[in-house]
Amino acid sequence: MTGLQTFDFEGDPVRVEFDGDDPLFNGRDCCRCLSIEKPENAFARIPADEKGARSTGTPGGEQMMVWLREPGLYRLIFESRKAEAERFKRWVFHDVLPSIRRTGAYGREDLPLADLAQLSRICDTVRRTHGIAAARKIWADRGGPELPVGAGERPVPQPSSDHQARLIPIVADFLADCCEAEATARVQARPLYQAFCRWAAITGQPTMTENMFGRTMVLIGHERKQSNSNHWLGLRLKTEVMRKLERSGEA
């Protein structure tokens, strides 16, 4: 599939180009719809293989702009806590992607094995960072085979107080800034908590006890393995971020 398509979200245009059969979403268009005031900061948190720069025609001439692949778009949507994010997410899932599929690029019946493997990796990352419901939604909307009822689900704990609920976005921001989701990765619980404390001191966020940090991680949906030393599964600390935190701690 080739060419540029423009979709309308509540009066704002969202440009979509194609890399073969893969849609690329204009990053600034998406940030505008999500009321993200600093797109560059949002783009910096998206892995390189989930975005790319392309020369794009504008009223002022050709400019290099960031375009997001589907995993990058999902990451941008699910990391936003603005009210617009839920409406934009529904619009992407219910209007944009179905419209693209009707052109033949994403047939549910003939999803190639390579695409299915990529979809599995995307959904596993989303499950670890945003929960099973978000992962199942992406699986269904991208044409994954029907799953048995309850597949992959486990009971989701709920915050026991308003204070605990307020800690969830703080820990989620730390994870977005300092960690990477990877199915086979694991990180020791104590170094992760120590990294959180350094990050909180630098960013001015309130800290919390190690026990409360662990409870909040569970509320977000992360799984802990307890053996000789406790580990959080599916996460690793970003090396470059840890170096900055360590240098800040030595200053």
Rank of each mutant, 00 (worst) to 15 (best):
L68G: 10
V171K: 07
V218N: 02
A201Q: 13
N228D: 13
L24R: 11
A83V: 05
P98W: 05
L235T: 01
D162M: 08
V187S: 10
P169F: 12
R142W: 11
D49I: 03
M217E: 02
S248M: 00
V149I: 10
A48P: 00
R32F: 07
A134Q: 14
H130V: 05
L73H: 08
C30Y: 05
A42W: 05
F78C: 13
T58I: 04
A251W: 08
A48M: 04
S248T: 04
F93P: 01
L24M: 12
Q205C: 08
G20F: 04
A140N: 09
D141V: 07
K225I: 04
D22E: 15
S227Y: 04
V66R: 01
L233K: 07
P59G: 08
N211K: 14
R236S: 09
G57Y: 01
Y74N: 06
Y193W: 15
H231G: 00
R128A: 10
D173R: 12
M212T: 14
R101I: 02
W91T: 01
P159L: 03
R87E: 11
R101C: 11
Y193K: 05
V241G: 00
E79Y: 02
T184W: 01
E210S: 14
I77V: 15
T103Q: 15
P148N: 05
P169V: 10
R28C: 02
R108P: 08
W67T: 08
H94M: 08
D8Y: 02
E182C: 08
E86Q: 13
T56G: 04
V126A: 07
G3V: 06
G204F: 01
S248Y: 01
I170R: 06
G27C: 04
S227T: 13
Y106I: 11
A53K: 06
L34N: 04
T203I: 03
K89Y: 00
K244M: 09
R128Q: 15
E250Y: 01
G60D: 10
D21C: 01
E210Y: 06
V66I: 15
Y106P: 01
D8K: 10
K244F: 02
P206M: 04
V66P: 01
A176Y: 10
F18V: 02
P47T: 05
E153T: 12
V16Q: 07
R247K: 07
A172P: 00
A83K: 11
A185W: 03
L4N: 07
E84W: 05
E70Q: 13
P23T: 09
E146I: 12
R127A: 14
L233N: 06
S120Y: 12
R215V: 10
V16E: 07
S80E: 04
R215D: 12
D141P: 00
P112C: 09
P157T: 08
E10C: 01
K82S: 14
A185P: 04
S248L: 00
I132M: 12
V171F: 11
E180R: 11
G20I: 02
D124K: 00
T203K: 13
G72P: 07
E62M: 12
I77F: 05
N26Y: 07
A140D: 14
E70C: 03
W139F: 09
G249L: 03
A189Q: 09
S35G: 00
R102L: 09
E182S: 10
S120A: 13
W139E: 09
A44N: 12
G143Y: 07
A165E: 13
D19I: 00
